[in-house]
Amino acid sequence: MAVDIVLVKKLSKLMVTANKGDHFHQLGLEFTHMETGACEMLLPYSDRLVGNPDTGVVHGGAITALLDTCCGMACASVLEDIGLTPTMDLRIDYMGVAEPGQDIYARADVYRSSQSVLFARGRAYTKGQEDRPVAHCIANFIRLDDEVLKNLSEQFRPFLDAVEIDE
């Protein structure tokens, strides 16, 4: 039985807001939707993320961070308790470039959850271009041992009560 999705929503919000100046803040990452086994996020366009100043296109590294976070949280949502899943590996195919100035959206789904590994895939796209993603990602995550997950959950729980989310 997967953990209460409300707790996952709270954890995801805590993750991107709790530590001013961390990598989530640097990129401006936001969670826009959470359900058990799936996650949606937003990477707002910013001049600071540009990889090629001639074109204004966002660097692939920012998209890697977006898809890693999105796939990882989708995997966390299928755990039995509130927690995280370390990234084992990921592969990103860049099928196109995101139009400069456009925010980048991501959607990730867990397609298999096994005893030791969680298998996820995700897409990054600009508005109205869901069927023509700029990048596609396959990422595998480690399922922590029960004892480690339990300790992590106990660490997180006290902080989650104070997090307010839109239902």
């Binding site: 961390d22 692939g60 920012a62 898809l67 976070t69």
Partner: peptide, 27 residues
């Protein structure tokens, strides 16, 4: 740098920052 941290309790670098660093280094 704090700006590349993903997990403040360890603290650990964000996997995306590591991936971005590798991609940038390659280019």
């Amino acid at each position: 740098s704090k700006g590349n941290v993903g997990n403040p309790t360890l603290p650990a670098l964000h996997g995306g920052a590591i991936g971005g660093f590798l991609e940038l280094a390659a280019s």
